[in-house]
Amino acid sequence: MEGWPDLVAPTRAEITSAVLALHRAGVAALAVDPAEVAPARDLLGTSPIAVVALVSAPLGAMTSGSRIAQAELALADGADELAVAMDPSLVRSGKLGRAVAELSPLRRLAEGRTLRVICHLALLGPDLGAEAAAGAVDGGADLIMTNSHFDGEVTVEQVATVRRRVGQRIPLVASGGVAATSQAAPLLLAGATRVAVGWSGFPLEPHS
């Protein structure tokens, strides 16, 4: 399991509470918005949980310069991985090659660290989304995430379609609209390596 920020504009107190809850739950990774990378890293200390910085998420519509600046700062703040939202408008406009080319500077920045690419399956539909995922792999993605938290819900069909398209080698995180860990099993069976569950799906206080 991974944690995924599904709270609308959380305060720092809410983020602290969520990060600690995710730590207790033993998630493998935790995705955070760009300004929260440093605080999350500080909270987690030497924990092996990977801090994943969201880049150009959720819409994938940022300018090239700001996307790169965002990634640079996130890495300097201690991000272990980057999760970049591809530009879905370019993909829907028949410009997948340009959307993939935009990943190049981020691939270089994240040298030696995991570059994830968010492929907007729910927005693009399974077939075009799977094409985007295959393009992202060609562009250097180490891992594919199905959706940003604004695309819509991940489905078994999306996961299976991407898995067929990119093969077994690439890790695949089912993300988007998963509100509880109990929803994970069918997605894992369909070929997801992990499932990203919204922060609000984890209890914020320890069980007594």
Partner: peptide
């Protein structure tokens, strides 16, 4: 959501 550091916002505006 505006969840960026100010440097990123300034860069996007400048672009």
């Amino acid at each position: 959501l505006g969840l960026d550091r100010w440097e990123v916002k300034a860069r996007e505006a400048a672009d």
